[in-house]
Every structure is written in structure tokens, then in C-alpha cells.
Nucleic acid binder design. Structure first.
Lengths: 343, 343
DNA sequence: TAAATTTGTTTAAACGATTAAACAGGTTCA
DNA sequence: TGAACCTGTTTAATCGTTTAAACAAATTTA
């Protein structure tokens, strides 16, 4: 059995004062009014007994847990864990702790996770929700639970969010390929109706159109997130074969880029001569590829910090809705520029 | 202002029964004894009012939060986030939620984090503690707070832990290099007295000795974790120059490998012909290097699962101390085998 | 038919904190 | 000198649960 933890009661008993007084002293309330000797005595005893605030009791009384719930797609993914780290640090600045969970892009898991976090009375949530979770989101709104969506959002629901301008980012990336002499451009992305991925497709298509390149459906490959490894390989094979064979490819996310590059590595293809490659999201490791990857950088630190600030503003002050769209940054490296030296 | 959440009291009032009865019904206690109609009515009302258990209140009463505190070095690091994901999933199986924090290998941060988690009354902890945290660990023991160290441990303190057999792993890696014709083998690791890293150095030195290769101090480079990028580059330059120039290198962790490889990439060196490379820890992305990396795989899933199981066993049943050391696995790829085809 | 048991429900204390309000004793003011 | 004010502290309610114990009414037992 665990030894009982010391409570205000124990300190009060030992000091011969009331519980209330102990609470006032340890919280520095009623500053001027408390007898200095007694205050010191209480503090000494608290230290001596190794007193530690019971946040659970405090939370129950104050109806505030100083906890933020974070739901990402998969904490082991580079994108999510980088974001988690930023959110952790920023939350800490305001005295909040983070509880997290991974949804695996699965609406059921997401819903269950949300339930757990709400039962734990988190003060608010930062989430990258999967598809088909509109109902849950609307329910949060109805219950006036503070939350901020990050990375993605539902265009039909009026919520807080911090997201990338995915249309522009994809447009910019595609344009970059075109400007560097590519015209047979393929794209591989996940086959989901997630709005932010739809936007990337839209940006890709728009850039082609604006540059008078016909959009060919066969060049836009959608892979299943579960079977991604195989699907990506099949997609690449298909894109590289036949009369419509591509000369450039746009990977729709860091995980797609990772599997895609591995496969390209195994083929007898040279990047960027035979094939230019550009990707979404930063992963330092993508620099290890012999032709370091050109990619669209998402401003993760700003996104994470903004999300936390917005959420805490909502929790502590008002419930104003804010929607922030940030611009991606095109980082040009060797994978899209012929003859460019390794960076 | 947030709308008040529904409590047992609200349900009781609406159903015209006592709070206790509502609690019994919703927790399926006193199964046989409760009037079925009333039970159904209570459940209906609970659903209708969107009732959700207040875990905070429950925890206060039961003195159990069903929460595990997780302290890693840096959640944004691949190693940590992979572990976090495994721990998350395993904990969930037992009905536990995870609160996490990153220590940045900093004892002060670690201590503060520990404080926060304990204030929140976590039922137990899984931690990869930084150096100089013996005092904190001993204090946890004194207070009989269940915890399991992971990845590292203090040889002088008798605690639960799950760790790699770092000596054997480093020995095995070094031996592999030697067996493949290398004799001038360098190592780059962090300059800390963390026991698990000491073990790696020891394994490296032992393998050299057992194979009659003189251990040269100049070939073991220790870099500062803060300045690692620059330090690693300097170390590599130094290892590759002069009469003692190496023909193989052992990177002591995934982050060192990442920076190291990037730098090697920028030099006019061919791997494995000019230099064989082996590393600790798996990162899928290390496969993107033109000579996919030979590495020591840590059995992360087993480590994470074991740690969770041990911890929960401690929390729910006894306080037996268990120490688990797992063997690493040598995964041979192209970076150490001359003429080996890309994998 | 009185005692014992069962059934279904309520009462009430407790978990560990916070905090408004009350209070006793001393000072100050007019 | 009595009202008003300070000072330092305590009282007591409350947050939302859980759960042992009490209880009233119905049923069974002997």
C-alpha cells in the first residue's frame, strides 16, 4: 500500500492551525494579514512533510485542470511529434500540461479519445481530426468546449483553426516544377476527402491549368493510408510507364515521400535528371537522399504556438473564433534543379 | 461562461431518486438489486443529458487517476516518439491515459516535469531520466511511487528498468565492422556520463581489444548534445584526417547518425568503400542514404510494452522490482558491406 | 404470526482543496 | 466611551463522485 500523501490537513494539525490558514499561506493569499512567524512555521512544516498540492482536488474545486488535450494522427510520425513538442513547450509557458492521443485517422478512435479527454476535464483541445468527425466537432461547439483545429479543418463548420494554405502551397510547388522545365507532372496523395488534401490536389491542378498544361487524371494517384507502402510503389510504377510517363512528381506528405523515395532509390532512375521530386512537409532525414529534397515547409512553430495561444485565450477570456491560414515556404534543394550541386 | 456539465445530481433530480442510486446504476454495481425500470430510466436520462463521468471527482474519491506520466528526452525525436506511441497504445489497453513531457536531457527540467506530473497524481511513471537525477529517483523510491526507467538506468540504484544491453550491442556492431575488414574504427557519441552511453563505449572498446586492435582514444569522439551539429562535423573531420584516419565509423545514436550522414554526404567520400558506417537506433529515413545504413535495432515495441506492463503490475498489484535487459539486433545493410547491392 | 431475510433505495461521510463569511480581540476615531 | 475599523484566524460550504451503513417495506421462514 502506498504511504498516504501529506495533505493540508496534516500540515494544519502539526502546526496547530486551521486548514484554511495553511491554504492561504501556501497560496500566498491574504498576503499582508498573516502572522509572519506562523506563516513561516507552516511553510517549514509543508517542506518538512514533503507537501505537494493535490491538483486533482484543486481541479475539482476550481473546475479547472490546466490541462490541454492533444489529438494528432499519429504521435510517432515526424510531423505530429514535432508539433507535439512545440505545443508542449508553449503550453508549459502558460502553466498547462498536455495529454495526448493518436487517432490513426480513424473516426472511431478519435471519438473514443475525445471521450477520454473530456472525462478528464481537459480545459480545451487541440486536434487534427480525421474524416467524418463533423458530428463530434459540432457537439464540442454545442457544449461550448474550447478547441482549436490544427493542420486541417472542416470548411463547412465555423471553428477555430490554424492551417496551411494548402492550395497555394501545392500551387507554388507545382509551378516551381513547371518553371524548371517539367511538364509531365504526377502527384501522389492519400485517397481521402480530407479538405486539406483536397486543397493540395486543387492547387496542383490549378497550377497546371494556369500554365496551359493539361491535367491528366491518370497522373494524380491516390493511395490508401493503410496499404501505403504497396500502393505507393504501384502508383510510381504506373506513373513512370507508358506514353504518359512523368518527368516530375509531387509527394503529398512526408510519409508518402519517405516510402516513395525508398522505392525510387531501388529503381534505375536518376533524380533530378530523369525525375524531379518535390514533397510536402519537412523531415530532416529527407536530406539524406542523394539529391536532397525540395519541399514545402509548413511553419510548424508558428502553427503550434498560435494554436496554443488561441486556445488559452478561449479558455481564459472569451470565445471569439479565430481562423488562421499560414503560407508554406518553398525550400529548393537538389531534387528539382538539374545540375544543382548537392546542398 | 461554460454551460454547466451534467452531474449525477442532475440526473438524480430529474429521475426523482438519490445520487447514490444513479451512481450504482451507471457503474453497474449492485447488479441484481436494482429495479429494472428505474435503472433504465436513469440510463435514459443520463444519455439524454449527455452525462459524462467527471474523472477528476472520481479520482479524488478513489485516489486513482488511471494516468501514466511519461518523461522522454525529447518527444520530437524519432526514438522518443516511437516509444511514446507504443506506450500510448499499451497503456490504453489497460485503461490508462498518458501525460508526457520532454526533459531535453536537462536535470532541472526533468525535476520540474516530475513535480508537475506528481502534483497531477499520476498513478505511475515511465521515464528516461537525464544525468544527475539520482536524487529525484531515490526520492520516488522513498515515497513508494511506482515507476519504470526505460532506455537507461542508474546502475547504483535498485529500480525497475527496461533497457538495451548496450555493451553487447556496441560490441556486436564493432565486431561486425572488424569482420568486414575494418580495423581503423572511430566512434562518435555524446559526451555524457549516462550509463547506457558509457556501456556503448565499453562495448566498442572491448570488441577492439578482443580482436587485437589497439584502442585509440583519439578515435572515440564525444560531442556536446547542444552543439551537436558543429561538434559532429568537427569530429568527422578530425577522424578522417591524419595518419590515424579511420575506415569505419560507429554513430552512437540516431540523431548523431543523421547529422553525421548529412555531413558525410557533403564530403567526397564513398560509403562503404572509403568508409563503413554503422549506427544505433532505427529511423526509416536512414534508408534514404545512398548506402542504406547498417544499424543496431532496439526492440522498441517489446521495450515499451514491457515497461507499461511492469508499471501497471506495480500500480495494481505489488511492488516487486524487475529489471529487464533486451538484446539489440544487428541489421546489416549496404553501409558496411563492400559491393553489397542497395537494399 | 413473530422473527428473520431479502429487496430496493437513501443517508451521510469522505476524498483534498478553495474561499466567502463570520468572529474575537485589539485599535483608532470623534 | 462607544462606534467603527483592523488584524489574524476559523468556520463551514462546496466541487462531483463513491460506498459502507442504515432503513423501510415486502417476503420468507419457522
Amino acid at each position: 500500500m502506498l504511504p498516504k500523501k501529506t495533505s493540508l490537513k496534516d500540515i494544519a494539525a502539526k502546526a496547530g492551525v486551521s486548514i484554511a490558514l495553511v491554504s492561504y499561506v501556501l497560496n500566498n493569499k491574504k498576503e499582508g494579514r498573516i502572522n509572519k512567524d506562523i506563516a513561516q512555521k507552516i511553510k517549514d512544516i509543508a517542506r518538512q512533510l514533503n507537501y505537494r498540492t493535490n491538483q486533482i482536488a484543486k481541479s475539482l474545486k476550481t473546475n479547472k485542470t490546466n490541462t490541454i488535450g492533444l489529438i494528432v494522427a499519429d504521435i510517432s510520425n515526424n510531423f505530429s511529434s514535432n508539433l507535439a513538442r512545440i505545443i508542449e513547450d508553449e503550453a508549459d509557458k502558460y502553466g498547462y500540461t498536455v495529454i495526448f492521443g493518436s487517432s490513426d485517422e480513424n473516426e472511431k478512435k478519435f471519438s473514443k479519445l475525445l471521450d477520454t479527454l473530456l472525462n478528464r476535464q481537459v480545459d480545451g483541445l487541440i486536434m487534427a481530426p480525421p474524416i467524418h468527425s463533423e458530428k463530434e466537432i459540432k457537439e464540442l461547439i454545442r457544449q461550448q468546449i474550447p478547441f482549436v483545429l490544427i493542420d486541417r479543418f472542416y470548411p463547412d463548420i465555423n471553428t477555430n483553426y490554424v492551417a496551411l494554405d494548402n492550395f497555394s502551397a501545392a500551387y507554388m510547388g507545382t509551378k516551381h516544377l513547371i518553371e524548371n522545365g517539367r511538364s509531365r507532372i504526377g502527384m501522389i496523395t492519400y485517397g481521402t476527402s480530407l479538405h486539406h488534401l483536397e486543397e493540395r490536389k486543387r492547387g496542383y491542378a490549378a497550377a497546371l491549368k494556369d500554365n496551359h498544361i493539361a491535367y491528366k487524371k491518370a497522373r494524380l494517384k491516390e493511395v490508401d493510408i493503410i496499404n501505403r507502402k504497396e500502393d505507393i510503389e504501384i502508383a510510381i510504377d504506373s506513373l513512370l510507364s507508358g506514353p504518359l510517363a512523368i518527368d516530375a512528381i509531387f509527394f503529398g506528405s512526408n510519409s508518402i515521400a519517405l516510402h516513395g523515395l525508398k522505392y525510387v532509390n531501388s529503381l534505375d532512375i536518376h533524380v533530378p535528371d530523369d525525375l524531379a521530386i518535390i514533397s510536402f512537409d519537412e523531415t530532416e532525414a529527407l536530406d539524406l537522399f542523394y539529391a536532397p529534397l525540395t519541399f514545402i515547409r509548413q511553419p510548424l512553430p508558428e502553427m503550434g504556438e498560435t494554436a496554443v495561444k488561441m486556445l488559452i485565450e478561449n479558455i481564459e477570456r472569451n470565445n471569439k473564433i479565430t481562423q488562421v491560414v499560414m503560407e508554406g515556404q518553398l525550400i529548393v534543394k537538389a531534387s528539382t534543379i538539374e545540375n544543382k550541386q548537392k546542398v
